[in-house]
């Protein structure tokens, strides 16, 4: 249970950062932390104490193994997050070229 609470705390740290930080790079990092927390939580759902990885052993089926599906899901979601992070970093580089700052309180031509 403690692990889940810690994991959720990590998620909250990410949300807090994404909502309150003023620096573009810090916002991107906070989104990364949020993503990691969720990935970690999904891996934890599949975790079993003392179980081995999910590979067929030579004589029949390994009866005590972790669920491999969440691990596959996490791989997919890590790749997606990589793509989104790359997109965000590219956008923030362009924003820096246009506005000469990373401070979001100064990047506000759009309002209302």
């Amino acid at each position: 249970m403690t692990v889940y609470i810690l994991c959720f705390t990590l998620f909250l740290v990410g949300i807090y950062g994404a909502l309150t930080k003023r620096d573009l790079i810090k916002i991107i990092l906070s989104l990364g932390i949020m993503g990691y927390a969720v990935n970690l939580m999904i891996i934890l759902f599949a975790y079993k104490e003392g179980a081995s990885f999910a590979i067929l052993v030579r004589d029949g089926i390994n009866s005590n193994m972790v669920d491999p599906l969440p691990q596959a899901l996490i791989l997919t979601s890590i790749v997606i997050e990589l793509g989104i992070t790359a997109m965000l970093v590219a956008l923030s580089i362009r924003l820096f070229q246009k506005y000469k700052t990373f401070d979001i309180t100064k990047i506000r031509r759009l309002s209302g």
Partner: peptide
């Protein structure tokens, strides 16, 4: 243009927060 990058960044941040929440729900 500058406004378009700004809008896209805002959209991408909101979009990734919502996607993370949806992934949490799926988990």
């Amino acid at each position: 243009k500058a406004e378009e990058y700004e809008a896209a960044f805002k959209y991408a941040v909101m979009g990734s927060i919502s996607s993370t929440l949806i992934l949490l729900g799926i988990g």
